[in-house]
Design a protein around this nucleic acid. Structure first.
Lengths: 105, 105
DNA sequence: TATGATATATCATTTTGTGATATATCTGCT
DNA sequence: AGCAGATATATCACAAAATGATATATCATA
């Protein structure tokens, strides 16, 4: 799938959680809670993706004073990328729903 | 990312197009058109994923009489999987939007 | 003082996605 | 008739992404 700059699902979920400063472990729990366990991101994925997001400058280390609780936050650029992604995702969801409705008739 | 049975983005896009009988090439074009080129799925991804969806019984060969135009359609199971996925995706989008709104204040 | 929760990290493997390429038909143009 | 470009499917070899397993260390509490 090629896009202007589309996020993978995991990236999306993590970035969606980083509109507020949070650390990796908190994000994992947040996602699990909010989706009632339907979506789980384990530590391997979590920290791998955080690294990637840092490299892209979509998130930054908000508070690293305590190495056991490093919080991250979206950069301006990251916020924009997330916003654009939300739009695209909404579009595809609308289309899927339209199709599903039709299919029921 | 572990989920009950979460679709990857590409799977989602393709399945969303298969609420009506369509063949691979048509799906590629449809996705490109509908997203104004923002999302592109090339032939390699397309036919690889179709195979996978067939194996999962989420789609089936709707009309294979013309080998140059094989149309596929969601199975009942596939429809259910897609519906569940739409719900999850909507949930995460809502959360992302909520966060983004907060972040602007 | 042991147990479970909190927290981060990485390696090796698996899973997923894709660029390149091949093949063949069909349509419209000259 | 001959050719170009669109239509359509397919696969291989590689790249990118995600993850299970594992390791490490701290903190709370029973």
């Amino acid at each position: 799938m090629k896009t202007t700059e589309q996020l993978t699902d995991s990236m999306f979920y993590i970035m969606a959680a980083l509109t507020k400063p949070r650390h990796g472990y908190a994000i994992m729990n947040l996602i699990e809670e909010r989706t009632k366990g339907a979506i789980t991101i384990g530590p391997a994925s979590m920290y791998t993706i955080i690294k990637k997001l840092l490299k892209q400058d979509w998130i930054y280390l908000y508070d690293g004073s305590d190495p056991r609780r490093k919080t991250y936050l979206l950069t301006q650029k990251g916020k924009e990328v997330l916003e654009a992604d939300v739009k695209l995702r909404k579009l595809m969801i609308d289309l899927a729903e339209m199709g599903l409705k039709e299919a029921e008739e």
